[in-house]
Write a protein that binds this DNA or RNA. Structure first.
Lengths: 176, 176
DNA sequence: GGATGCATGTAAAATGTTACATGATTTA
DNA sequence: TAAATCATGTAACATTTTACATGCATCC
């Protein structure tokens, strides 16, 4: 039974509100890879096929600071012999928060922010010819995304990615 | 040919960057209904089956101020005989910006923020039994959403909504 | 020697959230 | 007359974006 929780932001979150989706996704990267630098985390977000998060330093560095303050991460001074760096990994508390975030079916079932759905709701305001052109363009864009490599080092993520694209293509076809 | 544009936010946006998705969705409501109050706009967002936007006054009132300043809206003092109010409708510039937003296939094809996809990418980290339970819970949640009324006054939007839910259910079934 | 990649950060600005507040009107 | 709805707003705060900045190491 998942709690229907409010959006993160505002004065809320004394940490009892659960992880934000960015935090959850960051912990997911750490859960898979083990110790990572913040830079590697940035790269992971920046390389994502979704354009929703920029993966900017301005988002990632403060977020790690938050998770560290909440004792969900440990920092480890590290070095590859020459260059120094700081690696982060999860504490038991971090792992628990991650799993609670991951398995929150209430949040998972939400429609989130879907740029196509948001537009389709209004598409009937335009003439049929333009609707058709638009859907063709979107399908072509998605085909382009499907043709470009993603998650090459992660079979499971790639499978989800590809099935998402296939499902979306199938949806668009039903709208034609 | 749609321009791949950057995210709105930060110092960017001198208005040449296009509408945010919240602005686009607000103009969509106005495009459909004609003149609306900001309160009605709030209600429209708050009543949306997507939990992504809260439809708070703190988001809507400043947003309308922005669109007004950008000369995309006109304000009309109005009254139903007793209570006074202010209605807003689109200018030609607003309509043009709305259509550019609506028909931006590049943005429409983006994966946006999908709370289920975000989680599925990590689901292989858990044992199969928990994966299965989770997918069943999500399917049940989506069925609940599908069973609750939405867009009762808007056939086109309801059709999109229902087809979205059906497509998502179909996707989940392929993951089982 | 210059470009590129790894790594770390900060600053200003935009946008949104929660929460609070007010007042008029309508309904129970 | 009390509660709900319509309608308008503000304040404090959190998150994130863009943009800038630094320094070391490696590759060409």
């Amino acid at each position: 039974m998942e709690t229907k929780r409010k959006k993160p932001s505002g004065p809320s979150r004394g940490r009892e509100a659960g992880l934000t989706d960015l935090e959850g996704a960051a912990l997911a990267v750490i859960a898979r890879r083990g110790r990572v630098t913040r830079y590697a985390l940035m790269q992971a977000f920046a390389g994502s096929p979704s354009g929703f998060w920029s993966g900017s330093a301005g988002a990632v560095y403060p977020m790690i600071r938050r998770l560290l303050a909440a004792r969900m991460l440990n920092a480890h001074a590290a070095s590859d012999g020459r260059r120094k760096r700081v690696d982060y990994d999860m504490t038991a508390k971090g792992r628990a928060a991650f799993e609670a975030w991951l398995l929150d079916a209430g949040r998972a079932a939400d429609m989130g922010m879907d740029p196509l759905r948001t537009r389709l709701i209004s598409l009937d305001l335009l003439p049929a010819a333009r609707r058709k052109t638009f859907l063709n363009e979107v399908a072509a864009e998605i085909a382009r995304i499907a043709a470009s490599p993603a998650f090459e080092d992660d079979r499971a993520a790639r499978a989800v990615h590809e099935s998402w694209l296939a499902a979306r293509m199938a949806w668009i076809r039903t709208l034609g």
